[in-house]
Design a protein around this nucleic acid. Structure first.
Lengths: 351, 351
DNA sequence: GTGAAAGCGCTAACAT
DNA sequence: ATGTTAGCGCTTTCAC
């Protein structure tokens, strides 16, 4: 009965509206709306009739119109300082999967960490409000004013991979992660342990796992090892950062540590690479342990404390979705799993 | 005069509408609309008056309402098979930067390449239509029917990093890239050259730089070197792929090649790592060259043919934006720059 | 330069 | 079970 292809409206856009479907199916737009959204109070016969008509016409509902009518956009935002870094890519991937399987869209906002003039702060009510229904914060710092704004407009938010005061957070338990790494080293017999911490980027803009610094130190102290300031390094959370640190490490005179714990696998990899260049043998002369579970680490045999950022993103999204579904207690802080993966870059210290 | 904070409407949402601004400024909504969008035919005095009122009220326009009225969403979509891989992350980053600096939003669609049940094909008119104004295709295959649909609804599209028949593409000139790598090896004196190609993933779903395979071979032939099938390997575009290939390579008996060209840096890194494990010295016994310019490559001294995916994403976005601005000739295929970066993994072959 | 009014396409009471 | 009727908040002729 219905022509398979009924496009070619007079205008520019491909304007097949709910009205067209209603007419074609011989019902009202209200019924079409219900039928298409799977709402009750529609007889099976008319529902099928409508479904067929909609399909025949190639009808696609206008998200703008629906959004205007409902006040919901069915889009959730992800605010990230980077998208081209391991952790962030993984989390975004996890968020995306969960979202699309529920018919939601993902809107990506990049804070633009890297070079160039510091871009105007992207977080603003303008960015957020009336554009998205909920927000995932990726290791991003928000100041009290911004948090208050979010609360004012009652937007569900959860932070992933970086605690933000006043917001629910999904992420590994950094204290335990540090302990896991430290214990592994201690159990192997290490006592002279160096640490490589990450440093924040643009000041105050991002929440950095800076606490891993203190967590590392505390973990050592708990085992009766007093952290040695000379063996405490800081660098960027990147391979380059690790390379730099390894150089500084090697340049030092005096007694050397037998192991180093790095705040991320990328840094650990940098240390590894530069160590090799410098002729420092791993693990014979130096044991190296990272944090993350980066694929590249597996390839080089890096010992690490593994975590699953994609799962964290997914979990955060589930909470947000539940909150949007009316479950007010859905959003809450939660620890994500972590696990030691001992590989080839750690071994007992040479005596 | 105006109270700084005038929220606390009665309802649930933070409903400050254009109407409120109009009233506050003592003008009509039409004028507010013009003023706020910087349109002409508004006196400077009233414009400032409106700007102030809007700011005081904390007014944020509803993108849904605007979208409904104009038919434009000011959002462009990015369809990618992965977001957590080097190339893709970089491109998305480039797209995002260009977009937000023009007040556009980025909607991310992930085809979900990896594990699990093959998710329902996400590309559908439903996904695309009425949700975004233009589309960036990331190394993603589209079948003729899908392309036709896009053309029917007149949506500007550009593919990045993978040619799609019938669509404009931004990306490096793969033939030249291959030649660059091959020439470098030849100039060093290599004649026995192995190749590591990438393989596609989910069949027919993604456009993979599979042509690099033939490009590599052609490049060799142009230099009078007949590619040796025994030295032609195929693996996934990942570090693991490179590791696997290196093992296969090492397991072979008979004469060995003196160099290997890899279709990506990640693969090349895998080869490097596994070579080291196997005791194959690079570059003394084996020269390795990759393609991409991956940061990790710099850290290990990998020779590569560099490219800039972020710039490609940015360029694609510029075209799309121009097209949306009415420039019909804006979208077209264009080659992106590439350049040899000779580092430490290539050297003349041992005699 | 500014305003009035008619939609844009959908959803959500409220009727029937 | 289905239809009627208002809007949702903005843009856009078309008057003035």
């Amino acid at each position: 009965m219905a022509k398979t292809s009924e496009r070619a409206q007079r205008g520019g856009h491909s304007g097949i509206s709910i009205e067209d479907v209603a007419v074609a199916a011989g019902v009202s737009t209200a019924t079409v709306s219900r039928a298409l959204r799977g709402l009750p109070r529609v007889s099976e016969s008319t529902r099928t009739k409508i479904l067929i008509a909609a399909k025949d016409l190639g009808y696609v509902p206008s998200s703008s119109a629906a959004g205007l009518a409902t006040g919901k956009t069915r889009t959730i935002g992800v605010l990230a300082p980077y998208v081209d870094r391991w952790f962030f890519g993984k989390v975004i991937d996890g968020v995306e999967r969960e979202l699309h399987s529920h018919g939601y869209n993902l809107s990506l906002f990049n804070l633009g960490g890297r070079g160039g003039a510091p871009r105007e702060r992207l977080f603003s009510r303008a960015m957020v409000q009336k554009q998205i229904d909920a927000l995932v914060l990726l290791a991003t710092f928000l100041n009290p004013g911004e948090i208050e704004e979010l609360q004012d407009i009652e937007m569900p938010v959860v932070s992933v991979g970086g605690a933000v005061p006043g917001l629910s957070t999904i992420g590994v338990d950094d204290r335990e992660v540090s302990r896991t790494a430290a214990r592994h080293l201690r159990d192997l017999g290490h006592r002279r342990i160096a640490m490589l911490h990450g440093i924040g980027e643009v000041q105050q803009q991002f929440t950095v796992p800076d606490f891993r610094a203190t967590d590392f130190e505390n973990a050592l102290r708990e085992m009766g090892i007093e952290p040695e300031p000379r063996w405490t390094f800081r660098a960027e959370f990147t391979v380059e950062g690790g390379v730099t640190a390894a150089r500084a490490f090697a340049a030092q005179s005096g007694p050397k540590p037998t192991a180093i714990m790095c705040a991320s696998d990328e840094m650990a990899l940098g240390v590894l690479f530069e160590a090799q260049r410098l002729g420092i043998r791993v693990p014979e002369e130096l044991s190296v342990v990272g944090i993350d579970g980066h694929e590249m680490g597996a390839a080089v045999g890096l010992t690490t404390v593994w975590q699953d950022p994609a799962a964290q993103g997914q979990r955060a999204t589930q909470m947000l979705l539940a909150a949007l579904g009316g479950d007010d207690s859905a959003v809450h802080s939660e620890y994500a799993e972590h696990r030691l993966i001992a590989r080839e870059t750690t071994a007992p210290p040479a005596v």
